[in-house]
């Protein structure tokens, strides 16, 4: 910053000039010429800003829209992340069910083996369905907690 700039900024911000700036103001023809204008500009009074309540009220619909979009985005990300390992989980489950059925057939009658394995497969399917149904709920809860943390 040049000395002229410093003097202008001090005058405009209403700060008292130090000895160096005062002597610069007296000696510098440019600053002396500008002094009246700068002092006039320094006297420019500005009223207090309006309360943020008005801004917040006007922005409320936009914020609500953004919050909804953010919620859907977070949900989409969570569901997508949960769906990625699903084929592998299904593959492993099918392999386990088939292996269990093959093993049971050697020990039990065929109908009984089928009954046991069917129950096992039904339980696995139910657990998987419950797990995936929980994904959006957990994602929404995490989003809410994150918002509360950021507010805190």
């Amino acid at each position: 910053m040049t000395e002229c700039d410093e003097v202008r900024t001090m005058l405009l911000s209403g700060r008292a000039l130090d000895a160096g700036s005062a002597s610069h103001l007296a000696a510098c023809p440019r600053c002396s010429a500008e002094q009246a204008a700068v002092r006039a500009l320094a006297a420019y009074a500005v009223p207090a800003p309006p309360s943020p309540a008005g801004v917040l009220a006007a922005a409320a619909p936009l914020l609500a829209l953004r919050a909804r979009r953010a919620g859907w985005r977070a949900l989409g990300r969570a569901v997508a992340a949960a769906l990625v390992p699903l084929p592998l989980v299904l593959l492993v489950d099918v392999y386990l069910v088939r292996a269990a059925y093959g093993m049971l057939q050697a020990l039990l009658p065929r109908v009984l083996s089928f009954y046991v394995v069917f129950n096992y497969a039904a339980t696995l399917t139910l657990l998987l369905a419950v797990t995936y149904a929980m994904v959006p709920i957990v994602a929404e809860r995490q989003l809410r907690l994150r918002r509360e943390e950021s507010r805190a």
């Binding site: 800003p49 309006p50 917040l56 953004r66 918002r147 950021s150 507010r151």
Partner: peptide, 24 residues
């Protein structure tokens, strides 16, 4: 970033930080 996610309190904080300078 929080305002982008629809956080009104974050907007209020920003408003309070810059209200004077921006209004002036």
């Amino acid at each position: 970033g929080a305002v982008a996610d629809g956080d009104g309190r974050a907007l209020e904080q920003l408003c309070r930080r810059y209200e004077r300078g921006l209004h002036q």
